[in-house]
């Protein structure tokens, strides 16, 4: 759960196409990735979302840059005090600074969104490639396993698993709580990636260049990594960026219901859940976390939108 992971993975998701463009020689016709990058560069939505994401990622790594206050410091006599010059967003039920807690809350959301995506894509691509490449009973088996996990409605499944796993943990730390949420969300979402990876792989499996590679005696590993994967990557990247926002939203919903992230972790979902009873008297305590949460999801959704319209030729 170290921060460099966050930067690295976010960088790949946002700028993976950049590196691709420089790889082929300049004399050749533009590849899909160069096309996509040219398309992406023209979209204002892409740049807006990138700027917003940059802010949230910096906020997740260095919350101290935005606030000097301790988010855990509580003064009960200040409980639910409205926003003032001393505390821009007011104080929450425990008398903690809402601004500081909202800033520190970014970390949980960004980490859950990015790591869930990485894990779901990793497992999904492996299962999809195994099924699509091997075919036959292996394909049937991986598809059926995936169907079992998709067969449970997403939110219902997450609530069931999380509420049954939680009592088993004795005094878990922040890292363990977050890890459990990430694992549960990815367990329920990898089949979607697997399905897309599989169908995308099947569509290029019988292409001439794959047959040629096979005829030349290339090993299965070489065929998969050099030919099949690079050529079936686009839909996987699209679904990965689009779903990142929905994972953040799902994490907040689960935390709101009390089965997702819990106390030592600071999260927008928890902050909102803690103050639902004070909707009439102290709106500020849940208003600001809600705004941050929505803007963060918005940034990811916009990025997904931009990437999809750049990579999907049908939408142009």
């Amino acid at each position: 759960m170290s921060d460099p992971v966050t930067i690295q993975t976010a960088g790949v998701a946002a700028g993976g196409e950049v590196q691709e463009t420089t790889a082929p020689g300049s004399g050749k016709p533009r590849s899909l990735w160069q096309d996509a990058w040219a398309e992406l560069r023209k979209q204002p939505l892409f740049w807006i979302s990138l700027a917003l994401l940059a802010v949230f990622i910096v906020m997740a790594i260095f919350p101290q840059l935005f606030t000097g206050k301790d988010p855990a410091f509580a003064e009960l006599r200040r409980s639910l005090e409205p926003p003032s010059a001393a505390a821009w967003f007011g104080y929450d039920l425990q008398g903690r600074d809402v601004y500081a807690r909202t800033i520190y809350g970014a970390r949980a959301s960004v980490v859950v969104g990015v790591l869930t995506t990485v894990l779901a894509v990793l497992v999904g691509v492996i299962m999809g490639v195994i099924g699509g490449f091997a075919g036959g009973w292996v394909d049937s088996l991986t598809s059926r396993i995936g169907e079992i996990f998709i067969g449970v409605p997403y939110l219902l499944g997450a609530i069931l698993i999380l509420s049954t796993v939680a009592p088993a943990q004795e005094n878990p730390g922040a890292v363990l709580i977050t890890a459990v949420v990430i694992i549960v969300l990815s367990v329920l979402s990898w089949p979607i990636v697997a399905r897309i990876a599989r169908s995308s792989l099947l569509s290029v499996k019988h292409a001439d260049y794959v047959l040629a590679a096979r005829a030349l005696g290339a090993s299965p590993g070489r065929i998969i990594f050099r030919h099949l994967l690079p050529n079936s990557l686009a839909p996987i990247i699209v679904v990965a960026t689009i779903s990142m926002g929905s994972y953040i939203s799902a994490e907040a919903t689960l935390s709101f219901l009390g089965v997702g992230l819990r106390a030592p972790v600071i999260s927008w979902g928890i902050a909102i859940a803690d103050h639902t009873d004070y909707l009439r008297t102290a709106l500020h305590a849940m208003l600001f976390p809600s705004i941050f949460l929505s803007v963060c999801v918005l940034a990811f959704v916009m990025l997904g939108d931009a990437v999809r319209s750049a990579l999907d030729p049908k939408l142009r």
Binding site: A252, T253, I272, L279, V301
Partner: peptide, 22 residues
């Protein structure tokens, strides 16, 4: 639609409840 997609259901719920109800 972009805004609707980025609002988690419980945020939409509380917003409408607060504006229309309270």
């Amino acid at each position: 639609t972009l805004f609707l997609l980025s609002l988690p259901v419980f945020v939409t719920g509380f917003t409408l409840q607060w504006i229309l109800g309270i």
